[in-house]
């Protein structure tokens, strides 16, 4: 799961997609994850880091992660990962 390279994030939790012109604001957790994703940290590492630092169960985090990815897709912030099927 990779976030588009040119996405601009700010410490206030703002996200600007220069390709589409869309703006978003996120909560603190969203900012933390977006920053990590931008820095190329992979999903497993991000999740492990959250579990270490935050008061959340694995099950809850996995559930919310699915929703998070749907949100990013909906927002058009994810890099398309082409699967050629071979």
């Amino acid at each position: 799961m990779k976030i588009k390279k040119n996405i601009a994030t700010s410490e206030n939790g703002f996200v600007f997609n220069p390709a589409t012109g869309d703006s978003f604001s996120g909560n603190a957790m969203a900012s933390v994850i977006l920053l990590a994703m931008k820095n190329g940290v992979n999903t497993a590492e991000i999740k492990a880091d959250i579990l270490k630092k935050y008061d959340v169960s694995v099950a809850q985090l996995d559930r919310d992660w699915e929703d998070w990815i749907i949100q990013l897709k909906e927002a058009n912030l994810l890099e398309l990962e082409l699967n050629h099927g071979n």
Binding site: S10, N12, G13, F16, S23, S25
Partner: peptide
């Protein structure tokens, strides 16, 4: 700048 819009929005 877009930042002004973002600030106002959020």
């Amino acid at each position: 700048d877009i930042a002004e819009f973002q600030k106002m929005s959020a």
